[in-house]
């Protein structure tokens, strides 16, 4: 069963007080719990947060399943999200995603067997002048990506 760390719990308690309503702490709490749970939010995370936050599980699960930055199934250590919206797909976003999936032997949203990667196609990340752009986990963007740059990244990330 998932349990927040002492530090995580403290942060969640702070968020519960930070906004006008307790419910506003659901998004930040899910970010914290997701990180502590290896990158995804399992049903027991929802149950635990419901107890810690004293909010109905339904409210937490509705938020969890509405927003794309929360993963509802396990993801690799490096969740590579490739933008395939208009400008990025014009700059080869779909081709990059196809290439990477083929190289790693996975389909969209699937985790590699070694648990290193999950590849997803993402919607517009707001970096269309440096297309194609990718985001790995919840971190700063990597811009003007091409196959060589992707290969280099995949080789580096353990």
């Amino acid at each position: 069963m998932f349990q927040l760390s002492a530090d995580g719990k403290k942060k969640v308690q702070e968020y519960l007080k930070r906004y006008e309503t307790k419910r506003s702490a659901i998004i930040p709490a899910l970010y914290i719990a997701q990180q502590e749970n290896g990158g995804w939010v399992s049903p027991d995370v929802v149950k635990h947060l419901s107890e810690v936050m004293e909010l109905p599980m339904t409210h937490i699960n509705e938020v969890l399943t509405f927003y794309t930055m929360f993963n509802k199934k396990p993801v690799g250590r490096h969740h590579i999200q490739i933008c395939t919206n208009v400008s990025c797909s014009m700059a080869g976003g779909h081709d990059l995603a196809d290439y990477l999936c083929e190289r790693l032997g996975v389909v969209d949203g699937e985790m590699t067997k070694d648990g290193r990667f999950t590849i997803s196609r993402a919607e517009c990340l707001g970096s269309c002048d440096t297309a194609p752009v990718i985001q790995i986990n919840i971190d700063d963007y990597i811009e003007n990506v091409d196959k060589a740059k992707l290969d280099q990244l995949v080789n580096q990330l353990k």
Binding site: V86, S87, E123, C124, G126, S127, C128, D129
Partner: peptide, 11 residues
């Protein structure tokens, strides 16, 4: 919450 595809000015 800039998300309209093609928009990157607010960022």
């Amino acid at each position: 919450d800039e998300g309209e595809p093609g928009t990157f000015k607010d960022r």
